[in-house]
Amino acid sequence: MDQRTATFQQHRRRLFGIAYRMLGSPAEADDVLQDAWLRWNESDTDSLRTPEAWLVTVTTRLAIDRLRALRAEREHYTGFWLPEPLVEAADEDTPHALLERADQVSVALLRLLEQLAPHERAAFVLRQVFDVDYPDLAAMLGKTEAACRQLVHRAGERVRAARPAQVVDPLEHQRLLEAFAAAATRGDLAGLRDLMAPDAQLVSDGGGKVRAFGHLLQGGQRLAQLYYATFLRLGAGVRYQPVRVNGQPGLARWIDGELESVQAFEVQAGRIAAVFVQRNPDKLARVRAHLSQAGGPARLEQ
């Protein structure tokens, strides 16, 4: 590996993190990184004092341009749009996997970031997630420091207004989902209801490819009845696999041995406050391949 390639690979994880948080799609993020690599490969890197800053700047600007195009496409998306999740089996807790998850952003937050303008989103991601200093942020976005501070402030206000400030213990989150999966598997309607917040919500993304709710489902009782109805209809054909969804405890649901959905959960005050169900088969392709290689639902029979 030559020095130019080694330098790019050294920063690839961070560049992918920026692009994914900007676009909500691993495939789109990979495309941005490919374009960034081509520009890097064609540039005069010998004169660069800080290659990382150059790479982050190019990746960010490419992601902004790509996001502008995607926003037009997503305006015509069928039903709710949810990001394509980054999923790994729950037992993949190697030191490397833990490091990879350290700065991941939840599905709930990525959905909120969709409401931000491209430059707002870039400023928020670079500052709040990657802790980029304002002078560097201004250079990367081609704006003044004052303008960048305003972008970050405005984006932060919008995110805080829609997202609870409560920090949930990962172990509590995991135990809650284990109890939820057990109740859903045995058809325990009362148990499901007790685990749901009274005002819990469910958002599902089918992308027009499979059936999904075209409206927001609200109410813990209603959501409990939904999972109970799935048990009544499919019984032992349903399996819930503990997974990590964007670094947080989540569930993969398998029906008759096929991956049907990936479900991310937002927890508040010890109960499930929101469920984000990704059913779009195009957005599950990578997940299906990864989990199938890792054992899929077969591990649940062991």
Rank of each mutant, 00 (worst) to 15 (best):
R21I: 00
R21F: 02
R21E: 11
R21H: 11
M22I: 04
M22Y: 03
M22T: 03
L23W: 02
L23T: 04
L23A: 02
L23M: 03
L23D: 01
L23Y: 04
G24S: 02
G24E: 04
G24A: 00
S25H: 01
P26D: 01
P26V: 04
P26K: 03
P26I: 09
A27Y: 02
A27N: 06
A27M: 09
A27W: 01
E28T: 04
E28D: 12
A29H: 00
A29P: 11
D30C: 01
D30H: 06
D31M: 13
D31G: 10
V32E: 09
V32S: 05
V32L: 08
L33H: 07
L33A: 06
L33F: 06
Q34C: 13
Q34P: 00
Q34F: 11
Q34S: 15
Q34D: 08
D35F: 01
D35N: 09
D35E: 14
D35Q: 15
D35H: 13
A36L: 00
W37D: 04
W37N: 05
W37M: 04
W37I: 04
L38W: 00
L38N: 00
R39Q: 05
R39T: 02
R39M: 07
R39C: 12
W40M: 06
W40I: 01
W40V: 09
W40T: 09
W40S: 01
N41K: 04
N41M: 06
N41Y: 08
E42P: 00
E42L: 13
E42H: 08
S43E: 07
S43F: 01
S43M: 11
S43D: 08
D44W: 08
D44F: 14
D44Y: 12
T45L: 00
T45N: 02
T45F: 10
T45D: 06
D46K: 07
D46Q: 09
S47D: 14
S47N: 13
L48C: 02
L48H: 02
L48K: 00
L48Y: 00
R49V: 03
R49C: 04
R49F: 00
R49E: 09
T50C: 02
T50M: 10
T50H: 11
T50A: 02
P51M: 12
E52Y: 14
E52T: 13
E52C: 15
E52L: 15
E52H: 08
A53M: 15
A53Y: 05
A53W: 12
A53Q: 13
A53E: 15
A53V: 14
W54V: 15
W54D: 05
W54G: 05
L55R: 07
V56R: 08
V56P: 06
V56N: 03
V56G: 09
T57S: 14
T57F: 07
T57P: 07
T57E: 13
T59F: 08
T59E: 05
T59C: 10
